[in-house]
Design a protein around this nucleic acid. Structure first.
Lengths: 159, 159
DNA sequence: AATAAATGTTGTGGTACCATATTAAATGGT
DNA sequence: ACCATTTAATATGGTACCACAACATTTATT
């Protein structure tokens, strides 16, 4: 097996394991990873439209509707009509939604801290550099460039 | 944002982008990533039972049944009764299944090669070392240790 | 104003995952 | 041989995603 294939394998395994473990821990706090991401985005925006979510998270419109349905059913967000555009609805957090974000934050930090004890400070820096290079590369290869991050501060890949 | 959070973010973004891009390319070859993984496992094993798949891929029994249903419907695998155990069924590739694996292999290699042009040889080595350390760490933290690899040749932290 | 085009949201149907039953067959103790 | 346990596969119901189609509302054109 080539080193490239080995890397792909390790990356996939790592992601799968992290996703599971993190999700399991989150479940105890009353949310899933996907829900949390969405809640945090709504929190940052204050109030936001479906299409803006779809855009920020690089998700299909349908996915957003469904996710918001779930959150609304759980009383974590509310949809209210947009005063300026009667086609649109503005999505915002409820008290319960804000509370979840606040409750989860320390667990997120704890997880990250625990996890990265595996790496020295210089390894972390190396790793970050490599990840950025790979992210630039995959965007060059055709992947969507804007995902959930703040727009406009992309690491310059030139060409 | 701490470096840990930044790393988490970059890892998540990278995975999402790779997954999409790779899946899109694969779709043109007539399979999905999940299907390909399963097909490759069946190929390596020759013939295999549902539970062995679930174990190797760290997936729920239900997931396996469903995945095999899809592959069987597409004529890529067949289920035949196990002669030694009437509860079990042995899953094996059809000609079409084998063909897909052969067709896809070069694309997989091409993708990996293209992608990792972003990294120098020494960066790749670094990256692999870091990934292994993180995989070991996440397993320590409670994630399942055996995924997708051949059974019996586990490299990592197998106590 | 009415029709057309663009945009925002939701519906339909499909893949890939999960936890928790459920049914059939094998197995081990007596 | 019999019953309880375990194991193999599948069923039920749920989350998280997708492409594509439908529908409502706004905006542009005539």
């Amino acid at each position: 097996m080539s080193i490239e294939q080995e890397l792909l394998q390790q990356m996939g395994d790592l992601h799968q394991r992290m996703h599971r473990l993190f999700n399991d821990r989150l479940r105890a706090q009353g949310a899933s990873l996907a829900q949390l991401k969405l809640l945090m985005l709504v929190d940052r925006a204050g109030s936001i439209r479906s299409t803006e979510i779809a855009d920020a998270l690089a998700q299909a419109p349908r996915t957003v509707t469904e996710a918001v349905d779930g959150l609304e059913r759980d009383g974590l967000v509310v949809r209210s009509p947009d005063p300026n555009d009667r086609r649109a609805k503005r999505i915002s957090l409820t008290e319960a939604g804000s509370m979840i974000i606040r409750d989860v934050a320390p667990h997120r930090d704890t997880f990250a801290a625990e996890f990265f004890t595996a790496l020295s400070a210089s390894d972390m820096a190396e790793y970050l550099r490599i990840l950025r290079a790979l992210n630039d590369r995959i965007v060059e290869m055709g992947a969507p460039s804007s995902l959930g991050d703040r727009p406009g501060s992309e690491g310059g890949s030139g060409q």
